[in-house]
Computed example of a mutant assay.
Amino acid sequence: MGQTQGTSWLCPAEADRARLLDMERRIKPVRAAAMGILGAALIASGPWVGWWPVLVLLVSLAAFAVVDRGIEKAPRPEYRMAAGWALSQLLIAGSIVLSDGLHSPALCWLAIPVVTLSSRFSNRGVAAGLVLTIGLLLAVTIGLDHQAVMDDPSNLIFALGAIGAVGMLTTPLMVSDQAHRSDARIDALTGLLNRHALELRIAELEMQADGGDVTIGVIVADLDHFKAVNDAHGHATGDDVLRGTADRLRTHGRAFELIYRIGGEEFLVLLPGASLQDTIEHAEALRCAVGSRPIGDVPVTISCGVSASEVGAFDFQRVFGRADAALYEAKQAGRDQVRVRTLDDAATALARTAA
């Protein structure tokens, strides 16, 4: 699996990357339906505008298939999405060139991908997308036949108006949606996802794992002696320690949307596709990262409990229960360590209890 590489120009915060990936999951099936509608329109109008635009649409579908492959595991998925988005605009521009430029009925289609800009990217990404779209519009109109534009610029003006209006209207709608969703799903102190977001993700993973051939690793991590930190240094310092711990988990985590704050000083990491050994190694890496240096003047360590689901099924409560029991063992054994509970361990413990 890939490892996130911090923030980027398109995703100034890790929360932006989580939103981008979440929206991509939602847009993907709708995009397929929209492509079908565009394909039907191109086929229906083929006798009048020609068949080359249909070929361009097929190339676009193939390109999106390549972009989508493994995007959630990519270190910087936002760049792959931006490349796919830009390619879609280039292909629409190609369709316009092949169907009479300024007078092409596809001219207004450049506004369609603009609808998705604000759902994926921050304001800087929206601005960059609008600049690219307007540049392409000018290239396929003025660039191809500036005299035709001078004679009758109405098609260009209408297309510019549609692109600008779509960009302006969708941005505040997405800002409002983002604010409400962040309130519901983001922990205000650490910026990590919260229990509500976890419930939604668990439901997705349980459906994805059903009958499949992958396992899902679970890590439960807890800050060691956190009460003593609050007692000795005050709650403000305790908050700084929680934020610093969350930052280190994000920096060394595989993907932001898989790390959750589930309690005062307790964190959960989900690792889809990870074996038990993968999960153990990842937990050890997180433990070392958090304890590598003090946060402020406070030495910090974490204890981790690890477990993993069996192949083809993900019962979160059972896997979490095993990982939580392993965390308890780590605490009892002296803290600052990783302990593991497997399905066999749980069966053995149950048998001993029954006996």
Rank of each mutant, 00 (worst) to 15 (best):
E265T: 01
G263M: 04
G94M: 04
V131T: 07
V114P: 00
A197C: 00
E24W: 14
H225D: 12
E265M: 00
E204C: 03
L249G: 03
G238N: 07
A308C: 04
R17E: 15
H235A: 04
A74K: 13
E310C: 03
I157R: 03
R26M: 13
G36R: 14
H196F: 01
I96T: 01
Q3E: 13
S307A: 05
D187K: 09
V175Y: 12
P113T: 05
V166G: 03
C288N: 11
G264W: 08
C11H: 09
A255D: 12
W109S: 02
D151M: 00
L58F: 15
W109L: 01
F267A: 03
T237C: 09
A289Q: 13
Q3N: 09
R250F: 11
T215Q: 09
R248C: 06
V166F: 03
V97Y: 12
A323R: 10
V220T: 07
A13W: 13
T353D: 12
I71F: 12
V298P: 00
K73M: 04
L117F: 09
H235I: 07
F320P: 01
M35K: 13
I112E: 08
H233S: 06
G101I: 00
R287E: 13
G50C: 04
M174E: 15
F316T: 05
R120F: 15
R31W: 15
V300F: 04
I295F: 09
P172V: 10
R243C: 07
T279G: 02
A83H: 11
R318G: 01
A128M: 10
V269T: 08
D315F: 05
A32L: 14
Y328S: 00
H282D: 05
I92V: 06
R69W: 15
L242I: 05
I219H: 05
A289V: 10
R243W: 09
L42K: 03
R69G: 05
G238M: 02
E72K: 11
L138H: 01
D239A: 02
L276V: 00
V59K: 12
A221C: 08
E284N: 10
T7H: 09
G217I: 05
V175A: 06
P29N: 11
R181Q: 14
I186C: 00
P172M: 06
S275F: 05
P47A: 04
K227R: 09
L205R: 03
A179S: 12
R254V: 14
V114A: 01
V241I: 07
I92M: 04
R250V: 14
I163N: 02
G191I: 08
P75G: 05
G129D: 12
V340A: 00
R293C: 07
A106N: 11
F320R: 01
D187H: 04
D231G: 07
V140F: 02
D213N: 10
L107M: 01
L205D: 04
V149K: 02
R250S: 10
A203D: 14
A285I: 13
L193S: 02
T171S: 04
L38A: 11
S307L: 02
A18C: 06
